[in-house]
Design a protein around this nucleic acid. Structure first.
Length: 575
DNA sequence: GACGCATACGTCACACTATGAAAATAGTG
């Protein structure tokens, strides 16, 4: 049994949840959460570290007790401490924490006073009006709870592409080692770089007699085997993620890859064209009445319809077939087109790496420039910069720029957009920067009209370069705030400022369709990782995937510009 | 529960604000 760091972190987080609901020592709760974060952010697997004789208590936030618990988890897959907590408090109670507006205190009250032990019971109580009678609750809260339970139960079980990626890598790696396997590739929404995936589709070709199916269903992480056949098997991983494996002959690989990559809408459209021409297209190839005419490669499948190959990210039947027919498939932006990063944090606020570490890491990643954009003063919980500290950082950046070769640091800030649409630092300070990112981190629940006005007002400020994570959503955790993005795009066009595509796989806003709209409006998009540590520049790949889904080309992306061109563009936003 | 100074115990990162309650909780990266 392979226990991964994320498994350990998950258990610690769960223990913290229980302790919190039970009203245990808040510092103890924090200790578990800190440990969880430490483990989650670790590069190497704890299991390997232990095997290598490393002392876990050397890790920050891990003492004697937690080190022992980690060993216990590695050995047994769980911690007795958690099992005991589970006996005292039903799991449904912990689930209630997922409802916005319900924290540990209120959940505890609901559990102890009303004996509510599940989301279903919570909904029932809310509908019966029993909740507003509790101290600390009212009619509004009760209404929110009713709606939230509804939303939560409808929430599809798709997971972030970033959570799927390690599984895909491992599975492909394992499958390629199986004797007889020729090719292994991921298809489906993963290949199309959708922000979330419902399951993983993998396609293999293998020589006759290859034990690829047997090996697949005995993959060490398999929780359940749903189906096992000659050409198709399905498993559910212990993590709950379903994986389908399909096996075809090498001569059919292209057709199968095309078919299983989808999307369904794209495939329907493609087949319709085939039918008009008297062709039959399926996962084995393209056929005339006389027999097969294509199928070994994807190019051959599209070629049989006189179409050029279409990048998977575009295959949504959103006009890609029409442009392909005209020979005008966009040349989508690529990772290697990106020249620099325009949104990053340092240990001056909530980043975990110093300014210099970030600069050196950016240089190692091949970036030519890096904008340092820490938070501003009102975001106090992360130690946002006030005027004095920002000016000090500017000085530090200038010193580093004088010293470092091969990377240029840009002076910036991720400034809070306040409730009234003003910015969190005065103009004379902002004026000294190379760029200003404005972001919303509070007041998420404003009505659409107010939220939009607030953001538009911010974009109208004299110094405003980029609107950071424009919708504020956290995938599977928090919905976008209500904002009229069409109006935002219009304002960006009018003001000559830019919109961010936040590459953090949890965010990925702008979404694909909004990227497309920005492009059509002629508004440049900045693909930013929002890196909080040196390792996070690698998140850029997710942003590129999303940008490609949004039809963005190199010319549509702000940070594909070399430094001098970038400076010219930024200057127009700085007064 | 970790940690540091000390070997038993005190301290532990922030701090403001929206919400919706009538004082407190939750949310924000």
């Amino acid at each position: 049994m392979m226990i991964r760091n994320s498994d350990i972190a998950e258990i610690f987080d769960r223990i913290a949840d229980y302790l919190e609901v039970e009203g245990d020592n808040p510092f103890k709760v924090r200790a578990y959460r800190n440990a969880s974060r430490t483990i989650r952010g670790l590069g190497p697997e704890v299991k390997e570290m232990v095997a290598g004789g490393e002392e876990l208590t050397e890790l920050p936030g891990i003492g004697k007790e937690l080190a022992a618990k980690i060993l216990e988890i590695l050995e047994t897959g769980t911690a007795q401490a958690l099992e005991k907590l589970k006996q005292n408090v039903p799991a449904g109670v912990i689930e209630m924490l997922k409802i916005p507006g319900l924290g540990p205190k209120r959940v505890s009250l609901l559990y102890h006073k009303l004996k509510i032990e599940s989301l279903a019971a919570l909904k029932e109580a809310a509908e019966a009006g029993r909740i507003q009678a509790l101290p600390g609750f009212g009619a509004k809260t009760e209404q929110h709870i009713r709606e939230a339970v509804e939303v939560l139960s409808q929430r599809p079980t798709r997971i972030s592409i970033a959570l799927a990626r390690p599984w895909v890598d491992r599975l492909l790696d394992d499958l390629r080692r199986v004797p007889g396997v020729i090719e292994a590739a991921a298809a489906g929404s993963f290949r199309r770089c959708q922000e979330t995936v419902g399951d993983i589709d993998i396609l293999v070709t293998a020589a006759e007699g290859s034990p690829v199916m047997e090996r697949f269903i005995s993959f060490e992480e398999v929780g359940q085997v749903l189906a096992q056949g000659e050409t198709k098997s399905s498993i559910v991983l212990r993590s709950g993620l379903q994986v389908d494996l399909r096996r075809v002959g090498q001569e059919n690989f292209g057709a199968a890859l095309q078919y299983f990559t989808g999307s369904q809408a794209h495939n329907i459209a493609i087949r319709r064209i085939g039918r008009q021409r008297g062709l039959k297209i399926n996962e084995y190839g393209v056929f005339t009445l006389d027999g097969k005419i294509a199928g070994e490669t994807e190019e051959s499948v599209y070629g049989a319809l006189d179409l050029p190959w279409i990048p998977p990210e575009l295959r949504e039947d959103r006009g890609e077939i029409e442009v392909a027919r005209k020979g005008r498939v966009p040349e989508l932006v690529e990772l290697s087109d990106i020249k620099g990063e325009l949104h990053s944090h340092t240990s001056a606020t909530d980043g975990r790496s110093t300014l210099e570490e970030m600069a050196l890491s950016a240089r190692r990643c091949g970036l030519k420039y890096l904008a340092v954009t820490d938070h501003s003063q009102t975001l106090r919980m992360v130690g946002g910069l006030d005027e004095r500290r920002l000016l000090a950082q500017i000085k530090e950046i200038e010193r580093l720029n004088a010293r470092l070769k091969g990377i240029r640091l840009l002076k910036g800030i991720e400034v809070e957009i306040l409730m009234d649409g003003s910015l969190d630092l005065p103009d004379p300070v902002l004026q000294q920067l190379d760029l200003v990112i404005g972001s919303v981190h509070s007041g998420f629940r404003l009505p659409a009209r107010q939220q939009t006005d607030r953001i538009l007002r911010a974009m109208d400020q004299r110094f405003f370069s980029i609107l950071g994570h424009p919708s504020g959503r956290l995938i599977n955790e928090r919905d976008a705030y209500a904002v009229d993005l069409a109006a935002v795009i219009g304002k960006a066009k009018e003001r000559g400022c830019f919109l961010e595509l936040n590459a953090n796989p949890q965010r990925l806003d702008l979404t694909d369709t909004w990227c497309q709209m920005a492009k059509e409006a002629g508004v440049l998009v900045a693909i930013n990782t929002d890196a909080h540590s040196v390792g996070e520049f690698s998140l850029l790949a997710y942003g590129i995937g999303q940008a490609r889904r949004g039809w963005l080309e190199k010319k549509d992306v702000l940070n594909t510009r070399p430094l001098n061109e970038l400076r010219t563009l930024l200057k127009r936003t700085m007064g």
